[in-house]
Every structure is written in C-alpha cells, then in structure tokens.
Design a protein around this nucleic acid. Structure first.
Lengths: 237, 237
DNA sequence: TTCAAATTATGATTTTTATCATGTTTTCTC
DNA sequence: GAGAAAACATGATAAAAATCATAATTTGAA
C-alpha cells in the first residue's frame, strides 16, 4: 500500500476516456488520482462480497468482472459483466448500505480502488460529476427493470439468444464475416447470466450450433447468424 | 392550471413526512411548493407511459400506483407498487431518458406534479437532497437485483408466498390476530407482480386457502399464517 | 505426463408451469 | 334489475424446464 504504487495517474489512464471520469476537471481528477491504488487481480479472485461494507469504489482498467448474487438455492445469478472503464460499488456507497452483490474477476484484471472519502468529496464538490454518476445509476435501474421483465416473460431459449447477442456486442471481435465472443465463460456462468440450469444452456447451445446460428471455437462462441438469433430472442418472430 | 390550484403547500403536507422531501429546508421546499400542482386521479387512469418524455416528477399524496412494464407477449410485469409519500419518475429524469415503465392508478389517488426545472434546480442547490434522492435510487437498484434473482431462482409458489408477505407489510391492517391486505388487486395484477400466469395465481391462492395460510374477504386477502408463508417463500424451509 | 477433478455433453424422467377449455361468479353499465 | 362483460375458478393437456444419471472430454495440479 505504498503511496508510490499508485502507478499511472488518472490523467493519463487510457480507460478513463470511456468512464464516468471522462470529463472530470483536472483539479478533481487529481484528488482521485492521489488517493487511488491500482491492484492486479487474477481470475477467480473476489473483489468484494455481498453483505460487506463498501470502503470505496473500483474502476476497471482492464479485465472482466462478474457481478452476481447468490440465491438461496446456492446458484449464482449474474447481474452484470463489468469491463474496462466501468465503475463498481458506487451504488452501495451512495445507497449507504452494504454490498447487495458480490464481484469476482473472470478475466485477469487491473483495477483501481478509490477510497470512499476521495470519491464522495469529489461528488460533493462537482455537481456535474454527481449528476453523471446518478445518471448512470438511473440508467442501470431501467436496465434491471427490463431484465426482470425478460426473466419472467420470456423463455430460456429467447433469453439465451438475447444474452449471446449482448455478449457479442460487448466482447465481440470481427473475423471472416462472423463475430467471436472474446471472453471465456463456463456453461455454468452463462446459465447464471440467463438465469437457468447449466444443462439447459448446454442443450440450447448444441441446438443453436445444429441450427447454424453459432459455432464453437474451444470455449469461445462464434455468432454465425445474428439475425437468426435476434429473431429467436424476440416473441415477435 | 391556475396558479391558485396548488392546494396544500408542501410545508403542511402530511405525506411529506414520509417522503424524500421530509427534511428539505423551507426555502427549497417553497420552490417546490410554488411550482407543484395537485391532481386527483381515478383508478385505471394512466400517469405516464413507457417511452414518453418525463416532464417532472410525481409525489403521491394518497392512493396507490402500479409501475409496470409491458412485455413483448403483451403481459404486464409490475415492477413496484407506489403509495403515499413515494416519488415517481425521478429515475427517468435523472437518467435523462424516456420513461422505462408505465404508471397506472390502482386506488384513487391525489398526486402532486413537480415540473422538471423546479425539481432539478432544488437538487442542484441542495447537495444533501441530491444525495438523498441518489440514495433512494441506489437502494431501488439493490432491490431490483434481488427481484431478478428471485425471479430466476425461485418457484412461482415461493414467489407468490413472498409477495403476499410483502403486501401485508405495506398494506396490512391488523384485525383479530390476523392481517388483512387492504388493497384490491385483481388476480391478473398479482400475477403481474409475481411474474406468472393468472391461472397459476388463482390455483396457488386456492391451495394456500386450503392449507389455512390465507383466507379471502371478498377481493382482499387475509394472512392467517405468516410464519407458514415465510417458510414457503424460502428454499430453506 | 499422468491422474483426479471439473466441465461438457446427452439421454431419461419428473416437475413445474403455461395454455386451452369451460363453467361460475362478480361487476359494471344502461 | 337485466344483460353483457369481466374476473374468477377448475380441470385437462401440453409445453417448458429442472433434475437425475451417466459418460466423454477437458483442464489443472502433482
């Protein structure tokens, strides 16, 4: 925790451009930068646990983090996958409550930790920034409403097709007319995103493969027929 | 829209005590009060539709409002039931996007409308108030995560039992050792809260009744065995 | 490199839930 | 207060999805 280990100042951070810090004035950015701490995390490590007290926020510099809740049956519901430029934990901080979810690294990551006080002080001093953060939370709320509605009103097949399209949007890399989802997820994790049993995901992926909608390249999924998946994902086919 | 029709000033409003306006200093409360407009609504009326542009926020003085999303299959997913003291529409305003849900009156209501500018101006001038609003949104986000997890990982029976307990908490009136849910909801609306088919709700309510967990008084539900419902609502019975 | 453990895969079965059908009751409107 | 419409109820059936079982494959650690 040496004060020399802060590494790259926020001013020079490449992932900042896509983050909530993108247009924070230099003076405030310095406050953040002076207090932050960059930490490297390996796949499988826990960033924080549901029910614990948030001490600051996390800003992802690289890597991927799954945000999930553990249900009473022991299964994980993945709320969200966070990547470069995303902030974590600010809702718990601003809600003044313990974490409502847990966060685990699923692709090796470098993540800055900004202590509570530095973050809150910046919010208070800069209303524009505060508005931006609140805007982000509000947007997330709308997305959760949509997820809930999908969860109760759509079939597993529809939801899986939709999840694949979303993953392609966020993690897709182009190649030969198709798009590869450049992220390693276990079938169990995909099930956690969709909200279903692992076997159901395995079965449906096999079906999608047979129907030439997708193809598998090791653990990675290649989207062959985006339009087909889109049709499958919606009731109005 | 006469400027004399604002009715009770916020300073004297009884439902304010339980709302986000509860400890707003008088000067700011006056700004709100001067611009608000109290409107009476009858059951069935729409307050706003998903996809439209928010022009202000709503503050419920009395009555009950259902906040819902219409799924692509035409069914309603009820996100939340709002009552006295609750605010509506601030997430869309702060998210700077159109409404992500619709709002319909389900019990005759008196609702104040506060125009966008008056509300935003107050937020900007009063950081404490801004923090309070943000805290509320953050809390809602955590609740939505829990709802999503329940929706994907619990059975309809468990969810219905849980919904009944929640309704009893919010709308319950004591009487003879039991608690009556003092709110008229159609079976279809209960299905919309739980996220299931209407027939499933009807069947399960019959079952609960047979098992002496509940009793019906016209359209209203009486909770006979809270502990029994709690046991049913959880996997760890 | 080998072996154990974890993950993926697939089939069989059961459970859950939705849908369809039909009848009854309640509510609303004229 | 009669008639129509909506809501409620229940049975039968079908569809969807979970669970259980077992095997193949992959992965990781010694």
């Amino acid at each position: 925790m040496s004060s020399h280990s802060h590494n790259t100042p926020c001013e020079l951070c490449a992932s900042r451009k896509h983050s909530l810090f993108s247009d924070l004035p230099e003076q405030h950015l310095c406050t953040i930068s002076d207090h932050k701490n960059l930490i490297s995390h390996r796949k499988g490590q826990i960033l924080y646990y549901e029910g614990t007290n948030p001490l600051g926020i996390f800003c992802i510099n690289s890597g991927v983090v799954k945000i999930y809740k553990t249900a009473s049956n022991g299964k994980e519901q993945i709320i969200h996958l966070a990547k470069k430029g995303d902030f974590l934990g600010y809702a718990a901080l601003l809600g003044e409550e313990n974490y409502t979810n847990s966060a685990m690294i699923i692709e090796d990551a470098k993540i800055c930790f900004v202590p509570k006080n530095a973050f809150l002080a910046t919010l208070t001093k800069n209303t524009e920034f505060f508005k931006k953060v609140t805007k982000a939370i509000s947007h997330e709320l709308g997305e959760m409403e949509a997820k809930l509605t999908d969860a109760t009103q759509k079939s597993i097949r529809e939801r899986l097709a939709f999840v694949l399209l979303q993953l392609a949007d966020s993690y897709g890399v182009e190649g030969g007319g198709s798009q590869k989802i450049d992220l390693i997820l276990s079938r169990e994790e995909i099930a956690g995103i969709v909200g279903t049993a692992t076997e159901s995901v395995i079965r449906l992926l096999s079906e999608f493969k047979k129907d030439k909608l997708i193809e598998l390249d090791g653990k990675k999924i290649i989207i062959l027929d985006k339009r087909g998946l889109a049709r499958l994902s919606d009731f109005y086919a």
